[in-house]
Design a protein around this nucleic acid. Structure first.
Lengths: 194, 194
DNA sequence: CGGTAGGTGTTACCGCCGGTAACAGTCTTG
DNA sequence: CAAGACTGTTACCGGCGGTAACACCTACCG
């Protein structure tokens, strides 16, 4: 029972690359057949690798969300004042939107990747909840930290969703407004802390 | 050219009722045929009324979002201090989630209704942008008002999405945390305004 | 060397869904 | 009583996700 695992996972990456390309070209709604064609193979191979369409979309989404999560974790744990970290984290998020709007739209608007995106948002929120709790001196798992983390994530996400289709403002402008909004809340909480 | 508009729109409501029933029974992913069956008719009639599946889902989502938007607008324009209005608006939103979680999940998780939900979020954000601009003395359409409105909406929405599937906290608890987060940001902005 | 077993690839198909054309009954109107 | 408009049906199309069945290559083993 020799499992050719190594080159199987390499192949997976190649297939995901192709899927990525076609998503960037044709938008969020892509058929399995077109992905297969782009990869130069046929459908059953895709299904052997990913099980079903949900599996492929999950793998595709996971790849992007993992990278994004890594970037954001870096910024959250970077040295500097709290305000600088907030600023840089927000900017990093907006940067990704700006660099790959099609990918971002795919993640947000594709019904099939929705589950994976929710998982990403939850992981990010969990990260943030720890940071918030630490910064405000709350115990881990406290309701305030949980709700605030979700709220902050949703705030930046929704603003980003809007910005990706709003032609006017620059990244720096949007980032500044978001940071100020966020920081205001943060400062108020820290001040009212006791 | 007699247009039988009155009973046509009445019919529409009946059909939407049926669609609503079947969505609540079978979850967010429903076929046109099953909706037609539930309504006791056949597919072409549905299509004559709603054009395509997107049209039906839009009408269905619009019905709920319009009601919700009306409720929130009421609370936003209610008498009282700004803080009270924030508190009551947040609570009204959470109340709807609590009362009809299945409808809420349909709106959030159904890929087909996504467009309508985005439209709702945008209309709500527009409302809020006006309020924010007025409260902070910004001119209408200013970037800050736009971004903040989106951010605030996203914040409450995401926290609500989390809460609808989190068994623990009560509505009052979540509402209190959200209000405090929101109000902190608000107060900081108003203070730093001048 | 030949046969046989397993992994890789393909073609060709199924069932379901969204959407529509074409036809049949009914009710009004001249 | 015809003519037309409206409401309803059946029966179909194209495309999609998903799969069964078959063809190929390669390697191991008598």
């Amino acid at each position: 029972m020799t499992l050719p695992l190594p080159d199987r996972s390499a192949r997976r990456e190649v297939l995901l690359d192709a899927a990525d390309r076609i998503v960037q070209r044709d938008g969020p709604a892509v058929s399995m057949a077109s992905i297969a064609a782009e990869a130069g193979i046929t459908k059953p191979i895709l299904y052997r690798h990913f099980g079903d369409k949900g599996g492929l979309y999950a793998a595709l989404a996971e790849r992007h969300t993992d990278r994004l999560l890594g970037t954001l974790r870096e910024q959250l744990n970077a040295p500097g004042t709290a305000r600088e970290r907030v600023e840089r984290t927000v900017d990093a998020y907006l940067r990704v939107i700006e660099a790959e709007p099609q990918v971002y739209r795919f993640l947000v608007h594709s019904g099939d990747a929705h589950g994976q995106v929710l998982s990403f948002l939850n992981r990010l929120s969990a990260l943030l909840a720890i940071g918030v709790a630490a910064e405000l001196g709350l115990q881990r798992g406290s309701l305030r930290a949980e709700v605030w983390a979700r709220g902050i994530v949703g705030m930046v996400q929704r603003a980003g969703d809007w910005w990706v289709d709003a032609p006017g403002p620059t990244r720096a402008e949007v980032g500044r407004e978001l940071t100020q909004l966020l920081w205001g809340a943060y400062a108020a909480a820290a001040g009212a802390q006791h």
